[in-house]
């Protein structure tokens, strides 16, 4: 079609590279998204407690991890943490080696980066909570924890779903940067395949389509979730 040459796709080596690449990309995205959401919830809960030192700590965390490029965080984790003492001894060779694998480094930095963004998203959800609702909860005798868990979270999580979708799709695409620290995900293998075959355009088109499909599935899932959780009077009507 259109004079594009996809004969290299018949090579079993390239097929298995692409499959492994997609699996690693999905694993990295799923793990870091889950941890990021968890961090976001905990961070927003922490902020809602209005404890001075905890606020400062969380704000610092958000500023550091939201305002630095995830690529830099990955390189930092991969190359410098071991010199700061995060080392272990290889049981086979007896040599000192870094404690964190490339995958772990990528996963941690993506989780922290996504987590910092998610804290802000959840916080904005909590802050839009009408004061009347929390006051109503108080007058009904709900404790601070019960108000947070049974009233604020259910409403706030619905309000912040659209921005959470943004964060998760961005995080998914950012996994491609992990190829720099040798995590064999989709971009890592794509580069190798077009360097072997010189079918740069064909490989890039295929990779582009794979990313579009994967991220579309994610955003479709999120929009279904949004529709399912929709509250009367909030968000779009069905």
């Amino acid at each position: 079609m259109f004079g594009l040459d996809y004969s290299w796709l018949a090579d079993p080596a390239y097929q298995s590279w692409l499959v492994t690449g997609v699996i690693n990309t999905l694993e990295l995205a799923a793990l870091s998204s889950s941890v990021a959401i968890l961090i976001g919830m905990l961070g927003a809960l922490g902020l809602s407690l209005r404890v001075f030192w905890l606020d400062a700590l969380i704000e610092l965390f958000v500023e550091v991890f939201r305002n630095t490029p995830p690529l830099l965080q990955m390189l930092f984790a991969y190359f410098t943490l071991s010199t700061l003492g995060l080392e272990t001894t290889d049981p086979v060779t007896g040599l000192k080696m870094p404690l964190l694998s490339a995958f772990a480094c990528a996963c941690i930095s993506l989780s922290l980066f996504g987590g910092a963004l998610a804290i802000e998203a959840f916080r904005s959800g909590l802050e839009t909570m009408p004061k009347a609702i929390t006051e109503a909860g108080r007058s009904l005798g709900y404790s601070r924890w019960a108000r947070f868990w049974r009233i604020e979270v259910p409403i706030a999580s619905r309000v912040c779903l659209p921005s959470l979708t943004n964060i998760l799709t961005n995080l998914f695409k950012t996994t491609s940067q992990a190829s720099v620290i040798t995590v064999p995900e989709l971009m890592y293998y794509a580069g190798q395949i077009y360097n072997d075959t010189f079918r740069t355009l064909e490989v890039m088109i295929l990779i582009l389509i794979i990313y579009v499909v994967l991220v579309s599935i994610l955003s479709y899932g999120m929009s279904r979730l949004e529709a399912y959780l929709t509250l009367p009077g909030y968000g779009k009507e069905q």
Partner: peptide, 19 residues
């Protein structure tokens, strides 16, 4: 939407390639 997007991306890319 995405189907249309993919087709136009391929068409654009092949126009560049044949040039």
């Amino acid at each position: 939407k995405f189907g249309k997007l993919a087709v136009s991306a391929i068409a654009l890319a092949s126009a560049v390639a044949s040039n």
